[in-house]
Amino acid sequence: MDWFIYAGDDPGHKLMIMLIAMALFVLVMGLILFIVDRPANAPKWLVTAGFVGPALLMLTVGLLYPGLDTIRKSLFNRNGTEFLGLDNYVRAFTEPQFLLVLGTTALWVLVAPAAATFLGLVYAVVVDKSRFEKFAKALVFLPMAISMVGASIIWKFVYEYKPNTGAVEQTGLLNQVLVWLGGEPIQFLLQRPLNNFLLMVVLIWIQTGFAMTLLSASIRAIPDDIVEAARLDGLSGLGMFWRITIPSIRPALVVVLTTIAMTTLKSFDIVRTMTAGRYGTSIVANEFYEQSFRQNNAGFGAALAVLLFVIVIPIIIYNVRQMRLAEEVR
């Protein structure tokens, strides 16, 4: 039995297990569909169960049960033996160390989505209908394909620091620019609160392409007669941008902002790769990992996970409200 579960470090064995898993999956699904399809007029509950059942089972075991169990665990101590009530939550909101984490998280959620949306919008407007539009967009779009780990390494290299002694040359671009300008090199990732913003740059760098794509599409969808009428009224340039473009794409702006805000809240890769949460850069998503799997404090980690979920809810309510409003206007 172990043979089917663990492959060790044997490449052939790994591939075999993968093929077996795929074959098993195809076999099971084929069997389900065969049973559902076989009788001339199968009862409807059977057909329904055949189509919807596997996914629902997966969701129950993989999402619903674990989610509820985490909420329960968050009321217990580190190994679940002692009921603590809301102590874990109280701890998260009172100990200075975790207050700092919450503050940093708030900073991320406020700054990163706004910056990415703003840059995406500006870029979409300035390259719209230009000769290099496709190419220009692809450049900004490409980071979306890169993992946050890869992006973090790319930027960590930009922030690289060498002490400024004698003949040592800087190898990080940002410090080299500082030196060229006559300044002293800085250990960027150690400087609080600057380092938090430098970490955010990575997320902004990734998410701007997403904002640009969506906003560019909705700018194109603005009806020409509105633009025409505004022009007859004497609007142009920035006036047109503020009075016509922005109000017309408001629903898309809300979607982009809230989507990026949710990504920001959950993204842990960047902090993990760049600083592992040291030097005052930890955010809730990283602290969750740290507490659950490094400090082995499952109860407190669970409370942080629930906190993540709770913070998402107002963002989503706002999103849904705005959608409703937009639909009513239409």
């Binding site: 579960i5 674990p66 989610g67 949710m262 979920f309």
Partner: peptide, 25 residues
């Protein structure tokens, strides 16, 4: 809207109980 983080600890316990933790499965 459920963040992945909220499911990880119980899911891991499930896998440990089923004796498959650390595998591709």
């Amino acid at each position: 809207i459920v963040p992945i983080q909220i499911t990880l600890i119980p899911l891991l316990s499930l896998f440990v109980a089923a004796d498959v933790n650390g595998s591709f499965w």
